[in-house]
């Protein structure tokens, strides 16, 4: 278990999540979403536990976990910065947004900052192209990004 807490404690938290969906058919993704929200990623042991409890082969759990780009299988930064690189943002300067973020955070796309705070990723359209270029920090979307605004947003998380 990579998570810091004791194993039983972690599994009891997973049990809570599982209980929430006990009346649902095929709740695997919903459970993984909650796990991911809790730990920021999907710890392998938790996936194994979920597989057993839901009676889903663990190879299939892994298959699903690695298919969706919002699931991480390795620990990531406290804040996941996802920069939209789809065309509507691209033509309005998404490249500069990525450049600014890389500079400000001192990391490349796909990396996590040394203090464990930020992970930077490029992603597909976030559905807020009306305020392109845009990015998401965890659950929250920011648009109309300029160098200045990026710095403002990052300051919110410092």
């Amino acid at each position: 278990m990579e998570a810091v807490k004791g194993e039983n404690l972690v599994f009891s938290e997973v049990d809570e999540i599982l209980e929430k969906y006990q009346n649902e058919r095929t709740p695997l993704l919903a459970v993984l979403q909650d796990v991911s929200r809790k730990w920021g990623y999907l710890p392998r042991d938790v996936m194994g536990y979920v597989a057993k409890k839901l009676d889903v082969p663990s190879a299939q759990v892994w298959g699903a976990a690695t298919f969706y780009s919002f699931f991480e299988t390795e620990p990531v930064g406290q804040y996941m910065v996802r920069v939209c690189k789809s065309a509507p943002c691209h033509v309005l300067g998404a490249v500069n947004v990525l450049g600014t973020l890389q500079r400000e955070l001192g990391i490349q796309v796909g990396d996590t900052s040394r203090d464990g705070k930020f992970t930077l990723q490029a992603t597909s359209c976030l559905g807020v192209c009306g305020v392109a270029p845009a990015m998401m920090v965890n659950d929250i979307t920011y648009g109309n990004l300029t160098e200045e605004r990026i710095r403002e947003v990052l300051a919110l998380y410092e």
């Binding site: 082969p57 663990s58 190879a59 299939q60 892994w62 690695t66 298919f67 299988t73």
Partner: peptide, 27 residues
């Protein structure tokens, strides 16, 4: 047995045993 499945997606897809472990540690 369900020991293996596809993992990742697109060009990076590959066949992976349980939980991404090596085959020897899978079911």
């Amino acid at each position: 047995v369900f020991a293996i499945d596809f993992a990742n997606r697109g060009f990076e897809s590959y066949i992976s045993p349980s939980l991404g472990l090596p085959l020897g540690e899978s079911v």
